[in-house]
Design a protein around this nucleic acid. Sequence first.
DNA 1: TCTTGACCCTGTAGTTGCTATAGGGTGCAT
DNA 2: ATGCACCCTATAGCAACTACAGGGTCAAGA
Lengths: 134, 134
Amino acid sequence: MQIGELARTTATKVETIRFYEKIGLLPEPGRTSGNYRDYGAAHLARLSFIRRARDLGFTLDQVRELLTLSDDRSRSCSAVDTVARAHLAQIDQKIADLRALRRELDELIGQCSQGAISDCRIIEALGPSAQNGH
Amino acid sequence: MQIGELARTTATKVETIRFYEKIGLLPEPGRTSGNYRDYGAAHLARLSFIRRARDLGFTLDQVRELLTLSDDRSRSCSAVDTVARAHLAQIDQKIADLRALRRELDELIGQCSQGAISDCRIIEALGPSAQNGH
DNA sequence: TCTTGACCCTGTAGTTGCTATAGGGTGCAT
DNA sequence: ATGCACCCTATAGCAACTACAGGGTCAAGA
């Protein structure tokens, strides 16, 4: 299987696959006589894993960790659980941050009376009292 | 006022201030005899504006746009309103995406029975059926 | 006077996770 | 033999900073 087919199958760009190889996330495949990369089922499996984890928002470092964990099949699942839970906590934090931000921005927009900039509440709220400095 | 004081006042790193200058977001200040940057009230105002907008999640490009708009004080406020509303929509999208992701991840974690990796639902869910490929 | 230390300067490279380009080689069909 | 789709490497670019390296400046203390 050459790189283009692997790319189509996993909905990944060709360049991204080569990038994953370069950073050591995807093992180097064999080469054909014409120096084309030649992938097998194991590569497909591993890349699918990576993509799925990335879709779930894991960072590449977290993916690397999950891959290492999953390679050692005798190890307890709890390490995986820990990584996943840490990620979940990060997501919750991000959602909370965005919500706070949303509230603030919404309030600002609500005050906009569509008048001139000099009366604009949004601009006013952004600047400090020294805003007339230029 | 030298760069360190400006940095402390606006809770910005010194390097970031120089970076904003380099990309043309913050105008070049005068220099002292010793070639130190010398900032005034206008710079403080502008940097505060930038930081506040960044805290609200605006991109540097959006900040640039807001700064241009706010400089033209005769212009209508509605352009500002438009930028802000577009940003709000982006935030809503991000929140929705994160929530969907959170749900999925949460479900995965709920299935983890703390057994061996070979039985781990999380690993299983990440890999395709070909997971036994290595 | 000399030196210490906190501050400042420029310029460049690193971060994350790719994406895009340049400039070429391979393989198959017409 | 020539076109075309595909592949190769290497490098640079994106956001928005951050972190050096290798220096200069300035005020205070011994």
